[in-house]
Amino acid sequence: MNIQIEPYIEDGKTIMPSITLSLNTSIVGIYTDVKKIDYVMQALKSVGYIHPMDEGHYERLTIEESFRYYCALFDRKDEVEELLSAFGFSKQRKVKVKDLTKSERNKLHFLRAFLQTSQLLIIEEPLQQMDEDCRVIVTQLMMKWIESGRFILLLSNNLEDILISTGEIYRVDQTGCHPLDFADDSPPTKAEEDISFKIEKIQTKKNDKIILFNPPEIDFIESMDGEVLVNVAGDAYNCGMTLQDLEKKLKGYGFYRCHRSYIVNLQKVREIITWTKNSYSLKLNVGEGTVIPLSRAKISELKEYIGIS
C-alpha cells in the first residue's frame, strides 16, 4: 500500500517536502515532531481512519453502555462481551467513564479505532499516557486488528512507543522521509568475545563539556541515525564511540545488547514486559520507570544470561 503526502509549506518555507510511503509491513511508524504529526493527519483524512490522541467520551455512560453504543453503531452488537474482555474491562463494566483513570480512558478511546472497517488506521501517539497494563492490551489489539490484512500507521514523537509495536520506522523532517538507521545487529566474532577491556570511565559530551561516567552510573545506551546517546539519571549525553565498541567494553560490567539499537545496564532492569508473543520491553528502576525495547530474538538468551526461566 502506497501513501502520498503533499509538501507542507508555511510562510514560504518548506517544513516537509512531498513524501511517498510504501507500507510493506502491516504496522509502520513515523517518528517526527508534533507539528508534522498534525499535518500528516490532516493530509491523510481521505486515505484512512484518523485516530487522534484526545477525543471526547460520553462521561455519564458506564463502560458497558459505551461498548453497547459503539458496537451498535458499527453493527457488531453480538461482540460486546468479547470486546469487554479483550479490552480488559469485564470487571469494570458498571464503572462510569467519568471515574476512569487517564490511562483507562485512553484505552477505552481505542474502541472506536478498533471497530473501524477502513483499510488503513492512522493512530496519533498510540501509547501516550497509558500505564503498562493498558499498553499491553492496546498493543495486542493492534496486532489483532491487522490480522485481516489491513494496515496501521503510527505517528509519534516518542520513539520507544512505536518501537514496541513495529520495527519499520521512518523519521520525517524538513528534508523528507528516512528509514531509521539502527545500529548493526550482527553478533561479535569469537575473537571479539575473548577480548577483555579494563575501563573505568565512559567519555561523553554535553553543551561542549566533556563528562566522564563510571559504567554503573549508566542506565542504558541508544543509537539512532549514527548518533550514540548515553542515558544517565534521565539525561542523554553524546558519545563518540560506536554501539558495538561500547557493547564489547561494557560487557564485563553487566551490560547487555537487548536490541539492535540499545544496550542496557542489567542491574537497572526491574521487569521484562510481554506486549504480544513477539513484542517485549525492559522496564528499568530509574525515574518513573523507563521502558526500552527488547528484541524478540534476544528474549531466550537474556533469560539464560541472567538465570531466569
Rank of each mutant, 00 (worst) to 15 (best):
residue 175 T to C: 09
residue 99 D to L: 08
residue 285 N to V: 14
residue 89 F to S: 02
residue 301 E to Y: 12
residue 116 Q to T: 08
residue 209 K to V: 06
residue 139 T to P: 06
residue 263 I to N: 07
residue 204 T to R: 05
residue 39 Y to K: 08
residue 15 I to H: 07
residue 179 P to F: 06
residue 147 E to N: 15
residue 30 I to S: 00
residue 173 D to I: 12
residue 97 V to M: 05
residue 111 L to K: 06
residue 32 T to P: 03
residue 119 Q to R: 12
residue 206 K to N: 13
residue 100 L to A: 05
residue 79 E to D: 12
residue 206 K to D: 10
residue 307 G to M: 04
residue 255 F to S: 06
residue 179 P to Q: 05
residue 291 V to D: 07
residue 115 L to C: 02
residue 247 E to G: 10
residue 149 G to N: 12
residue 222 E to M: 12
residue 63 I to N: 00
residue 70 Y to N: 02
residue 182 F to S: 10
residue 259 H to P: 03
residue 66 S to C: 13
residue 183 A to R: 05
residue 176 G to H: 11
residue 305 Y to K: 13
residue 163 L to A: 13
residue 178 H to Y: 08
residue 273 I to C: 03
residue 184 D to R: 12
residue 200 E to K: 13
residue 20 T to W: 04
residue 198 K to H: 15
residue 22 S to Q: 14
residue 178 H to L: 14
residue 4 Q to M: 03
residue 188 P to N: 13
residue 1 M to P: 03
residue 103 S to A: 06
residue 274 T to A: 08
residue 36 K to I: 14
residue 293 P to C: 09
residue 301 E to N: 11
residue 300 S to G: 11
residue 91 K to T: 15
residue 153 L to E: 03
residue 263 I to P: 02
residue 286 V to H: 06
residue 1 M to D: 00
residue 269 V to S: 00
residue 171 R to P: 06
residue 205 K to N: 15
residue 9 I to L: 09
residue 302 L to C: 05
residue 211 I to S: 02
residue 133 D to M: 15
residue 90 S to M: 12
residue 104 E to C: 12
residue 25 T to G: 05
residue 90 S to Y: 09
residue 117 T to H: 14
residue 119 Q to S: 08
residue 294 L to G: 02
residue 218 I to T: 00
residue 107 K to Y: 05
residue 56 G to Y: 07
residue 58 Y to A: 05
residue 7 P to V: 11
residue 90 S to V: 09
residue 255 F to H: 05
residue 139 T to I: 07
residue 84 L to M: 11
residue 212 L to N: 12
residue 157 N to M: 12
residue 129 Q to Y: 15
residue 201 K to M: 10
residue 35 K to L: 13
residue 154 L to F: 00
residue 228 V to F: 05
residue 306 I to G: 00
residue 123 I to P: 00
residue 212 L to A: 13
residue 241 M to K: 15
residue 184 D to E: 11
residue 99 D to K: 11
residue 235 D to E: 14
residue 69 Y to F: 07
residue 77 K to D: 01
residue 86 A to S: 15
residue 199 I to D: 01
residue 127 L to R: 01
residue 188 P to H: 13
residue 60 R to D: 13
residue 140 Q to M: 09
residue 111 L to T: 04
residue 85 S to Q: 14
residue 106 N to K: 13
residue 3 I to E: 01
residue 302 L to W: 09
residue 155 L to Y: 01
residue 292 I to W: 01
residue 72 A to G: 11
residue 254 G to F: 07
residue 207 N to G: 09
